[in-house]
């Protein structure tokens, strides 16, 4: 029986990076849905990059950026006296970038589909922009938030290439489930690989099923 540590580590990584992405992705997605700025297209393209970029490329740049001599990494060393690469913190940063499009895009779509109509109605009823956001836009974007959270979480769970590049394989620190499966196969421990793969498969299916099920229910409600 393989240790379930890697599974727990993956879940923890997924939860933390999804939470951070939702928190900071919401204002960005909202801005993208409303702005007429020329910068919009550039930022949309940057957000979408991780979809097309091989994870190794993303991982390579992150390794350089987050490494002890890198722009971000050296600053981190000064601040905390530990390195970002080959640490859980580094994995969180990598996951946030890697899963960003899967959170931002559903949110942006949800915000765009609300349109100006309800916002104008709320404004003429005396609601200020932030008030409108929390009382009208957020509740009407429930499905978008659900999709964003589950997609971001599930995508982080399945990440492999980026983790391998910036995280290495430190048990309890950076040895997430996909890396553990790879290790077991390398060592010809197929039984353990089966257990972990089966767990990940079941878990991913449950996530997707929940997403489509709840989405269907919400669609009937409105």
């Amino acid at each position: 029986m393989p240790g379930l540590g890697p599974l727990w580590l993956s879940v923890k990584l997924g939860l933390i990076s999804t939470a951070i992405l939702i928190l900071f992705g919401t204002p960005l997605a909202f801005w993208l849905s409303r702005t007429r700025s020329h910068a919009k297209t550039v930022i949309e393209a940057m957000v979408a990059l991780p979809i097309v970029l091989p994870p190794t490329v993303l991982g390579f740049y992150l390794l350089i950026l987050l490494g002890p001599n890198g722009l971000v990494g050296s600053y981190w060393v000064k601040l905390t006296e530990s390195t970002l690469t080959f640490s859980f913190g580094g994995l969180v940063i990598a996951s946030i970038l890697y899963s960003m499009p899967f959170v931002i895009q559903p949110l942006q779509n949800a915000f765009e589909s609300i349109g100006r109509g309800f916002v104008e109605a709320a404004e003429t009823l005396g609601a200020r922009p932030l008030d409108v956001f929390f009382t009208v836009i957020l509740p009407l974007s429930t499905r978008g938030f659900l999709t964003a959270a589950i997609m971001g979480f599930a995508h982080t769970l399945g990440e492999f290439g980026v983790v391998l590049m910036v995280g290495g394989n430190i048990p309890g620190q950076t040895r997430v489930i996909s890396i553990a499966i790879y290790d077991h196969v390398e060592a010809l421990e197929y039984a353990q690989a089966h257990v972990l793969s089966g767990l990940l498969l079941a878990f991913s299916f449950t996530c997707m099923f929940a997403l489509y099920f709840i989405n269907g229910r919400l669609r009937h409600e409105h």
Binding site: G117, E120, A121, A122, E123, L125, G126, H222
Partner: peptide, 20 residues
């Protein structure tokens, strides 16, 4: 003066009741 500060009651062609 922002729309939320103008004392008007606007009835739109489409009722625009908040669906939630």
């Amino acid at each position: 003066v922002s729309p939320w500060q103008r004392p008007v009651g606007y009835v739109f062609q489409d009722a625009r009741l908040f669906p939630h």
